[in-house]
Design a binder for these strands. Structure first.
Length: 434
RNA sequence: UCCUCGGUAGCUCAAUGGUAGAGCAUUCGGCUGUUAACCGAAGGGUUGCAGGUUCGAGUCCUGCCCGAGGAGCCA
C-alpha cells in the first residue's frame, strides 16, 4: 500500500512511491508535458506528466484539472533542481475528488487582487501561501504564550465572555439580549482574573474580547484575542519584567520554529533578533518631553495618539515600556502612585517599527475606599462591582497584571501593514462576513 | 461622527464631454522542462444607484449606497 505523505516531509521519500492528497494549485502545460502544482496544506509540490510515459486517461485527467480541484495523486518522488522546492513527483495515477467547474472558476487567481475582493473571499484566501504562513506564525505565538505561562506554573482560569456590565464603563460594548436582560460581550478578562489570582496566586486567561468602537484603522478589530496574566503580590516592576520576558520568549520561539514562514512573508528578521531583554523603560513624563522635542503637540495628561506611538517606538530598536501614565486617562481599577497620586502605576508596551501598543497593564488598586471613590467618579453602577469589591474586603493584597493583544503581536512579528490578515476571520467596523 | 481617496468585463486597471479598451482568468488551437510559462484566436459590459446639465455623460453637477486610508475614540 502506497503511504499517504505530507508535502512538507517530501524529502524523506525520495525515490519512493507516495500518495499526495490535496488540491491543484496551478497547471502549466507545454504540449505533451504537463506541470501540475499540487498543494496539500503543508506545502507545494510540482508534478510531471509526460504524455508518452503514462496511460492516456491519466494525461487527460490531469490536463483537465482546474485550479483548486481536489484530488489524490500517486507517483514517485525525485530530486529535481529545476522544480520549485527541489523535488518533483512523476505522476502515475490520479483520482479526482471534485473538479472545479470552468463555468465557475476559482476566484482567487495567482494574480493581484484588491483588499475588498480578498476579504469577501477570506474563506478561500486562507489557502494562499502567504495567509498560511501567517496562520502558522499566529499559532506559534499562541502556543508560545501558553507554554510561557504554563512553564511558570500559572493556572489557566477561563473568564466569561458574557458579562453583566462594563469592565471599564467608558468603552463601547456589544450588547446582547440575555433572556430579556441586558448583557455584554467581554472587553477584558481582567476583573475576573483578579478573583482568580486571589484563588491560585498566578493566573492567566486567553480568549476573545470585543470592542464596539467605531475605530477604522489598520490597528483595530472589533473582535480580537488577548492573553492576560494576573499575579497576586506582584508590583509594577514585577509585571513589567514579566511582560518583557513574555515578549522576548514569544519572539525567540517564532524565530526558532517559524523561519520558513517569516521568509515567505519577507520579514526582516534582524529587526526581531534584537528583541532581547532588557527593553528600554520610559516614564510617561519623559515620553511626553521626548515627543515634544520631536514636534508632537502632546500635552501632559493626555494619551498618545497613533502618531505619537509611532514616533516613540521609532526611537528604539526593541519594544519599549512606558510607565506612570496619568491616573485620569487610566481605568478606575489602576493603583495610583502613593508618592504622586496623579500618576498611575501602569505600564504599556509599544512594539517597534510603529506597530503601537501591544501590552497594557499595571498594579491594581487594593483599597476598597479608593475603588469606591473611583467607581463613583466615573459614574459606574456600583451594584455591578460589588463582587469585585469583595476581593478588597476579604484579604486584599497588592497585585498586578496585563493584557497582550495577540493580533497586534502577530502583525508586528509578521511585519504586516494591517491586523486584518492576522486573524482567520476578522471582524471590523464594516466587516462581519464571511 | 468627521476628513481624504475610490467604485468601468470574473480579477487588476486604462479611456480631452464624442465608436467602452488592455493584461490576467475562462473556452478553443499550438508547443517534450515549464517556473505568476509562452504564442495565436474567441466569448465576456445596465461604467455602484437615482436624478440633473448637454446635440451627446464612464467623464460635469446634486443626493444616496458601498469600500479603502486616516482622525476622533480605543488595545
Amino acid at each position: 500500500m502506497t503511504p499517504a505523505v505530507e508535502i512538507r516531509n517530501i524529502a524523506q521519500f525520495e525515490g519512493q512511491d507516495v500518495l499526495i492528497q490535496g488540491w491543484l494549485y496551478n497547471l502549466r502545460e507545454s504540449g505533451k508535458i504537463l506541470f501540475p502544482l499540487f498543494r496539500d496544506g503543508t506545502g507545494i509540490l510540482q508534478g510531471v506528466v509526460v504524455k508518452s510515459a503514462v496511460a492516456p486517461e491519466v494525461f487527460e485527467s490531469v490536463r483537465n484539472l482546474t485550479q483548486e480541484s481536489s484530488l489524490r495523486v500517486w507517483g514517485k518522488v525525485r530530486g529535481e533542481k529545476r522544480a520549485p522546492g527541489g523535488y518533483e513527483l512523476d505522476v502515475t495515477k490520479v483520482e479526482i475528488l471534485q473538479i472545479v467547474p470552468t463555468t465557475r472558476p476559482y476566484p482567487i487567481t495567482p494574480k493581484e487582487h484588491g483588499v475588498e475582493f480578498l476579504m469577501d473571499h477570506r474563506h478561500l484566501w486562507l489557502r494562499s501561501t502567504r495567509q498560511r504562513a501567517i496562520l502558522g506564525v499566529r499559532h506559534e505565538i499562541i502556543r508560545a504564550c501558553r507554554d510561557f505561562f504554563d512553564d511558570r506554573e500559572f493556572t489557566l482560569v477561563d473568564t466569561p465572555i458574557l458579562t453583566p456590565s462594563a469592565c471599564e464603563g467608558t468603552t463601547t460594548l456589544f450588547e446582547v439580549n440575555y433572556f430579556d436582560e441586558k448583557a455584554y460581550l467581554t472587553q477584558s478578562g481582567q476583573l475576573y482574573n483578579e478573583a482568580a489570582a486571589m484563588a491560585v496566586g498566578k493566573t492567566y486567561c486567553f480568549g476573545p474580547t470585543f470592542r464596539a468602537e467605531k475605530s477604522k484603522t489598520r490597528r483595530h478589530l472589533t473582535e480580537f484575542w488577548m492573553v492576560e496574566p494576573e499575579v497576586a503580590f506582584a508590583r509594577l516592576d514585577d509585571i513589567m519584567t514579566l511582560a518583557e520576558e513574555l515578549v522576548a520568549f514569544v519572539v525567540a520561539r517564532v524565530l526558532e520554529r517559524r523561519r520558513e514562514e517569516l521568509k515567505t512573508l519577507e520579514r526582516n528578521v534582524s529587526k526581531l533578533e534584537v528583541c532581547v531583554p532588557p527593553f528600554p523603560r520610559l516614564a510617561y513624563d519623559d515620553a511626553v518631553k521626548m515627543l515634544k522635542e520631536k514636534g508632537s503637540e502632546i500635552v501632559w495628561g493626555s494619551d498618545f495618539g497613533g502618531t505619537d506611538e509611532t514616533l516613540l517606538s521609532e526611537s528604539f530598536d526593541r519594544p519599549v515600556l512606558v510607565h506612570g501614565y496619568p491616573s485620569d486617562i487610566k481605568a478606575f481599577y489602576m493603583q495610583p502612585d502613593p508618592a504622586r497620586p496623579e500618576v498611575a502605576l501602569s505600564a504599556d508596551m509599544l512594539a517597534p517599527e510603529g506597530y503601537g501598543e501591544i501590552i497594557g497593564g499595571g498594579e491594581r488598586a487594593a483599597d476598597e475606599q479608593l475603588l469606591l471613590r473611583r467607581i463613583e467618579e466615573q459614574k459606574l453602577p456600583r451594584e455591578a462591582f460589588e463582587w469585585y469589591l469583595d476581593l478588597r474586603r476579604y484579604g486584599s493584597v497588592p497585585h498586578a497584571g496585563f493584557g497582550m493583544g495577540i493580533e497586534r503581536v502577530v502583525a508586528w512579528i509578521c511585519g504586516l501593514d494591517h491586523v486584518r490578515e492576522t486573524i482567520p476571520f476578522p471582524r471590523m467596523l464594516y466587516r462581519l462576513t464571511p
